[in-house]
Design a protein around this nucleic acid. Structure first.
Lengths: 240, 240
DNA sequence: CAGGAATTCTGGTCTATACCAAGGCGTTGC
DNA sequence: GCAACGCCTTGGTATAGACCAGAATTCCTG
């Protein structure tokens, strides 16, 4: 009997996944505690945790510091090609969005930044940090850099809501062209804290360079998303 | 003395990361074995493994089944907006690319697939599976679906190299418009085997719908990338 | 009844140990 | 010369137990 043809941790994964698929456990609900699961399936806590982490990697469940494991809500569709801002498209998908500004300050472009953004070294940039989320769950942090020379007075505008709108309405510089860079990475300490996630949590990192109709850089933006909260959509035409 | 202000596993992470950054361990090299690291840093193997997994999530190292842990090579830049094919752009980046066809067969569109691809239910599709990689390291698996009705005789063409080229040269249907969907996910058993990665390994899943100049679907493609092998780049103009 | 203190519960970290399975490699035998 | 066998190393899986830190709840007190 009892060949262990199957991996024990996978058994736990399957058991939990079934509960989730059949909606015994549904979005937002807490899973049984690690100790209870272990007892139920006759396994050790280490093995149970391994299973939970697999489901976390799949994005099916997430943990909240010392509170428990929960079933992950649906992902947010994010289409950087649509001229809409966060609050709008998140609400459109039936979530209750929020956006908190963390900081706003001036920084000077060092060599690397200057060449990356094709501006002059030493140029002043307005740096904006935010956390954004839906239904009380923070999903990404972002750092925005705005070249002050091209956007005089930008520091004094209210940027808490929509930078895109300010650029368009106040400066007549709608972002026309976007360059995205996307990699899978992990959260550092700061980002993890803001997203209420463990350090090292899998993340999706998006770098976005936006240019106006003349091809001049108007916004540089780095976003760190919880990996399980994002479905990125992009549509474009091939450049031949 | 000895406050454990720091997490032991993080100590290990920092130690290894330093070795990597200062190039004591460089691309492709094997790390010391788990047991050796544990002894060296006076910690248990479980803790060491935890640290290794953190570095794996960051994409700094990867493991090869029972052979050891290795320093991850640079990521491949992938820009689906450029009208180039895999072998070309990978070679351009200094890698030695390869591409293996796994299977080629006909499948019939079910309801879900039909509506997703805006074709008729029951329509025949040519399904192509491949693994691709660089420098002997498989980096992604893909499944391509081609609607046979729109591409008569497509099954009999040599599709092993570049589907894009066949579509353009033989059918005069260059892909003009692309719709991407990107999510962070994890590898299932089949994909994991093909990529020589552990089951559950973090992956980036890309769905790609390509259309010709008339807006008709000509190619549907699902790619599963090792998360640490990909840097996705996209450039496009905003739709207002 | 409100506010604070104590308790309980949950995940977070860590140790020590054990055995398994597969890759790598050297040795042995033909 | 080379294939087959077998040993050693490496990661893979699993157990049992311990203690910590923070969240949640309960309970007690003024």
């Amino acid at each position: 009997m009892a060949e262990r043809a199957v991996v024990k941790a996978v058994e736990v994964v399957v058991w939990l996944r079934t509960l989730i698929y059949e909606k015994t456990l549904s979005t937002g609900m807490r899973l049984p505690s690690e100790r209870v699961i272990s007892e139920q399936l006759q396994t050790s806590r280490v093995t149970t945790r391994e299973a939970l982490k697999m489901l976390e990697t799949q994005g099916l469940i997430y943990r909240s510091n010392r509170r428990g494991w929960f079933v992950t809500p649906p992902r947010i569709n994010y289409d950087p090609g649509r001229a809409m801002f966060f609050m709008e498209y998140v609400a459109e998908q039936g979530f209750k969005p929020f956006s908190h500004q963390i900081s706003k300050k001036r920084v000077l472009a060092d060599t690397a930044l200057a060449s990356l953004l094709s501006i002059e070294e030493g140029d002043s940039l307005v740096e904006l940090k935010r956390v954004r989320g839906a239904d009380n769950r923070p999903v990404y942090v972002e750092t925005i850099l705005l070249p002050e020379r091209r956007l005089p007075g930008i520091y004094d505008h209210d940027l808490a809501h929509s930078v895109t709108t300010v650029l368009k309405e106040e400066y007549n510089k709608p972002c026309m062209n976007v360059e995205l860079e996307v990699i899978s990475s992990s959260l550092d300490k700061d980002a993890a804290e803001l997203l209420q996630a463990p350090v090292g949590y899998t993340s999706v990192e998006i770098h976005r360079v936006s240019r106006d109709a003349q091809g001049a850089l108007v916004e540089y933006d780095v976003e760190h998303w919880r990996h399980d909260a994002l479905k990125l959509k992009v549509e474009f035409n091939i450049r031949s």
